[in-house]
Design a binder for these strands. Structure first.
Length: 577
RNA sequence: GCCCUUGUAGCUCAGUCGGUAGAGCACCACCAUGGUAAGGUGGGGGUCACCGGUUCGAAUCCGGUCGAGGGCUCCA
């Protein structure tokens, strides 16, 4: 923890040094804020001209010379008036000074010729900063205070560490992230593509990507039936009546694809599945005896994402949610939540994610639904998290206007967090669609509605998985599980026989009967990250055996065919990672 | 939507001072081919994202549009 604090000081101080360097270059620059962030720092400036990447080099050099000057960081408390006077020409600083709550101290930090309005803390002196343990990374635009209507500032991002070794490790980590980029791997492994000319943000799943997706879907459906869900299918478009009733046209229109007109009516591509599931629910009158209804659908939805927001598979305009809605009585609600949470955890763990944490978001200021409902629902969510022994944080007031929620976040192989599952109450739609069930006492009551996605969306989940496994999917997911490689043409028949044998047992297998040399065949299979290569020649043919080369490069020779088939079968069935 | 960067063959990229395009891989053909990460030879393939301007001449310079990448913002 002490170390964390020290790094924070280093980074924050580094931001000040950078501001000094930038002011040396642009004496008229307006300075704004420059905090420490994960792994580094940034500073936002209003500059007379935009920066180009070459400028980073000059800023870096100036920073290095400031650091080597060994200037102390000095803290000074001043009155508001003094501060205003000192930052006379700094309009953003004026705004910041005015925003400091009455009664709080106004403090300044100076190093050498540079003084900044700052809460601190900082390192003692620039000599604690290492000239060879920081690096400026990028230039980006950022709105003043993050508001779109405010002026665009120039932000410089940097990373800073205690020593050059840590910097090197971090730069290596950035390289790893780049290597695992799902967009890159998707291209290399021929899994999916996006086509600007056919519509940005819309995903094309290639045969190999589709195989992986289907393996995920098959498992998903299987588990849902085992856990008491039913599958439904609903349309992709709905008339404006549906979206008016749901409220989407009032509150979510900017997020929807525009209307298609037909027969004097407006149809909209669905941004969510919920109204459709409600249509099914409302098709008949429900007794409390029918509840809970647990209805799941891999429902493809379309949402308008701003052009700059799209990112590979992680942020798209058309995607398939692994959606489900649970409609239940108030008495059932607690158990249902617990079951949904357990199910989510089971699913995530099945994909090799062990490090899972929860976020509970509670009632915001503006919301619909009775307070008592919010309270019982929120407590049910909290109870479920605690029953499962999950680490969790509470985001007070962070829930949607229509209900509290739990989000689950996982850590991937590189330690990055991704939000996947979400379990959300909805007090809005049951009201708007006038949903009811007849209770024991013969009175019509409103059911609880729980909305949940376990994987989030298949596209996004697939992107996360791809980066998590770096493209080397475990056997149960791999698009091709086994590649059969005869060492020469004369063993083609035996190889064909082995391929057929595995294919008949339901494995995803192919044979390499090309005229490539053995070396090339192995290289190709290796690059495709196929978990098992079966190498066949005379020795194997005579013994009715295979030699198995694993993805790791290890090899075991002369394994009887059925022994290997059993091993493969077990790995797939157990979904071994 | 905004700021910065960027767009050359299916992929990865080179192309200097403006003189109408190149490599490797992939693909196709032929030859070779018995053991663990690329066998050899040859061939096809590009309106240099698009539109306009400057120029005798533009992949190259200028303006615009679209897309992509890095951020910001948004994500009831």
């Amino acid at each position: 923890m002490a170390n964390e604090e020290k790094l924070k000081r280093i980074r924050h101080s580094m931001a000040h040094v950078m501001a000094e360097a930038v002011l040396q270059m642009f004496p008229d620059a307006q300075i704004t804020i420059g905090p420490s962030i994960d792994n580094g720092f940034y500073y936002d400036f209003d500059l007379p001209r935009t920066l180009v990447p070459d400028d980073l080099e000059e800023i870096t050099n100036r920073m290095k010379s400031i650091i080597t000057e060994d200037k102390p960081f000095e803290r000074r408390v001043v009155s508001r008036e003094e501060a205003r006077k000192l930052f006379e020409k700094q309009t953003y600083k004026q705004e910041l000074i005015n925003a400091i709550p009455e009664g709080d101290e106004v403090s300044l930090y100076s190093q050498g010729g540079f003084t900044d309005l700052c809460r601190g803390p900082h390192v003692e002196s620039t000599k604690e900063l290492k000239a060879d343990a920081f690096k400026l990374l990028s230039i980006a635009g950022a709105y003043w205070r993050g508001k779109e209507t405010n002026p665009m500032l120039t932000r410089i991002y940097g990373t800073a560490w205690e020593n050059p070794k840590e910097l090197r490790l971090y730069m290596k980590h950035l390289e790893d992230i780049e290597k695992r980029d799902h967009r890159k791997l998707g291209k290399e492994l021929d899994l999916f593509s996006l086509h600007e000319e056919a519509g940005p943000g819309l995903v094309y799943w290639h045969p190999k990507g589709a195989r992986i997706r289907l393996a995920i879907e098959d498992f998903w459906r299987d588990q849902h039936y085992k856990n008491g869900y039913e599958m439904v299918f609903t349309p992709h478009v709905g008339k404006s009546w549906l979206w008016e009733t749901s409220g989407h046209l009032d509150f979510y229109k900017e997020g929807m694809y525009p209307a298609m007109e037909m027969d004097k009516a407006n149809y909209y591509a669905k941004p969510m599945n919920c109204p459709f599931h409600i249509m099914i629910y409302n098709n008949t009158k429900h007794s409390y005896r029918d509840l809970p209804c647990r209805w799941a659908e891999l429902g493809t939805v379309y949402r308008y994402e701003k052009a700059g927001a799209m990112h590979g598979l992680l942020r798209v305009r058309g995607f398939t949610q692994d959606d489900a809605h649970v409609f239940c009585t108030p008495e059932q609600m607690g158990d249902e939540i617990l079951e949904v949470l357990r199910f989510s955890l089971y699913m995530l763990r099945s994909f090799g994610f062990q490090d899972i944490s929860a976020y509970l978001s509670t009632q915001p200021a503006k919301s619909v639904g009775e307070k008592s409902k919010w309270d019982t629902a929120t407590e049910a969510l909290r109870g479920a998290i605690e029953a499962e022994g999950l680490e969790y944080e509470v985001d007070e007031g962070g829930g949607a206007f229509y209900g509290p929620k739990i989000d689950l976040k996982i850590k991937d192989a590189l330690g990055r967090q991704w939000q996947l599952s979400t379990v959300q109450f909805d007090f809005n739609l049951p009201e708007r669609f006038n949903m009811t069930f007849v209770d024991r006492d013969g009175i019509e009551k409103q059911p609880f509605m729980i909305h949940r996605a376990l994987l989030g969306s298949l596209e996004r989940f697939f992107g996360v998985l791809l980066e998590h496994y770096a493209g080397a999917f475990p056997a149960w997911l791999a698009p091709e599980q086994v590649r059969v490689i005869p060492v020469a043409e004369s063993f083609g028949d035996y190889a064909e026989k082995v391929v057929k044998l595995f294919k008949d047992q339901g494995f995803r297998v192919s044979g390499d009967f090309s005229t490539d040399r053995l070396n090339a065949k192995i290289r190709n299979a290796q690059k495709e990250k196929i978990p098992f290569m079966l190498i066949l020649g005379e020795k194997e043919m005579e013994a009715d055996a295979v030699s198995v080369r694993y993805r790791s490069g290890k090899q075991e020779n002369g394994i009887p065919i059925d022994v290997f088939a059993d091993l493969l079968k077990k790995q797939v069935e157990n979904r071994e990672n």
